[in-house]
C-alpha cells in the first residue's frame, strides 16, 4: 500500500479542521522550507516587475481571496504564472478552472507538484484547510468556474443503490470495482478512492483533474453525485467485507497468488510431514 492509504483519517481530520498535532508541526516545518525557497525564486521576479503595475488591472479581491493571492504568489506562481495565466511548458492557466479544481489539487497534496511526472501523486497537503479555501477563493474570483457545495458530508442524501449503478457505468472502468484504482496508458493511473474525502470526490467529478473526464452538473446532477459519493464512502469503504479478508480487492490475480502461497504451500508442508522425504 502506498503511504496515501494509511492516512485517510489524518486527511479527513485536517479537512474538518481537527488537525493531528504531530503531522501539522512537521508540515509547517516543510512549508517553511519550501516557502523560503519559493520566496527566493519569487523575489527575483518581483524586482523585474514594478510592484505598482500589477495592482491596477486586478479587480478588487475579497479578504479571503487576497490571502489566497498572497499564498499563490509564494507557492504557485513559479509554474502557473502571475495572475494564474500559466507558464508555457511548466503549468497550465488556472483561469476558469474554478474553486473545485483548486480544492481537489491542493487538499489532496497533488499541488504544489513535487516533480514533473506522468501524473501527480497524492501527498500530505502543504496547506491547511483554511489556506486551501483562500487559494480556491482567489482562483474563483480570477476567472470563475465550478464550485463544490458547502459542507464536509456531501452524501447524506445519497442512495447507495442508485450510486452503485452510476459508479459502475462511470467510474469502475478506471477506479476498479472496489475503488482501488487502476492503470492507464503509459504510466498514468486512476488513483485509489480510499483516501478521498467527499469534497475531493465531488471536486474531481466537477473539474476532471488530469486525465479524468469532466462530469459536470448537467451530466451528473448534484443528487447523483451524492449517490456516487454515498456508494464510495458507505459501501466501498465503510461496508466490511462479509467473506473475510478481501485480498486487496484486486480481483482474480491476488486470488491466484493466494491459492499458491497459502493453499499449495500449506498442503505441500503437510505432505512433507505426512510422507517420507527420501
Amino acid at each position: 500500500m502506498t503511504s496515501e492509504n494509511d492516512r485517510p483519517r489524518g486527511l479527513l481530520a485536517r479537512l474538518r479542521g481537527r488537525p493531528a498535532a504531530r503531522s501539522r508541526g512537521r508540515r509547517r516545518l516543510g512549508a517553511a522550507v519550501r516557502l523560503l525557497a519559493a520566496l527566493a525564486l519569487a523575489g527575483g521576479a518581483y524586482t523585474l516587475f514594478a510592484p505598482g503595475a500589477q495592482a491596477q488591472d486586478s479587480a478588487p479581491l475579497s479578504g479571503a481571496a487576497a490571502e489566497g493571492k498572497a499564498l499563490f504568489d509564494v507557492s504557485c506562481v513559479t509554474c502557473h504564472g502571475r495572475n494564474a495565466q500559466g507558464v508555457e511548458g511548466r503549468g497550465p492557466s488556472l483561469i476558469g478552472v474554478g474553486a473545485a479544481s483548486v480544492e481537489f489539487q491542493v487538499s489532496s497534496g497533488r499541488m504544489p507538484l513535487a516533480r514533473q511526472e506522468a501524473q501527480a501523486h497524492r501527498k500530505p497537503p502543504l496547506f491547511t484547510d483554511e489556506q486551501t479555501r483562500q487559494l480556491a477563493q482567489y482562483i474563483q474570483e480570477l476567472g470563475g468556474g465550478p464550485v463544490v457545495p458547502e459542507g464536509d458530508n456531501l452524501h447524506e442524501e445519497g442512495n447507495v443503490a442508485a450510486g452503485g449503478e452510476l459508479f459502475r457505468i462511470n467510474c469502475s472502468q478506471c477506479h476498479a470495482f472496489g475503488g482501488g484504482g487502476g492503470a492507464l496508458s503509459s504510466g498514468k493511473f486512476a488513483p485509489s478512492l480510499r483516501p478521498a474525502s467527499d469534497r475531493q470526490i465531488y471536486a474531481a467529478m466537477l473539474s476532471g483533474p488530469q486525465n479524468m473526464p469532466v462530469f459536470g452538473d448537467n451530466q451528473l446532477r448534484p443528487d447523483q453525485k451524492a449517490d456516487i459519493i454515498a456508494y464510495i464512502q458507505e459501501t466501498l469503504k465503510h461496508d466490511q467485507d462479509p467473506g473475510g479478508f478481501n485480498l486487496g480487492r484486486y480481483g482474480p490475480s491476488t486470488e491466484g497468488l493466494a491459492i499458491f502461497l497459502v493453499g499449495i504451500v500449506a498442503l505441500v508442508f503437510a505432505s512433507l510431514w505426512i510422507a517420507g522425504k527420501s
Partner: peptide, 28 residues
Amino acid sequence: GLFQINPIWLFGPYEAWVVSAASQPDWY
C-alpha cells in the same frame, strides 16, 4: 472462511457497457 473470493456483489450485474479496471480471469 477467511479469504473473500470473487465478491460478485461488488461487480454488479453484467451489462454490456460496464467493465471494471483489472478485469481478469481466474489464475489458470
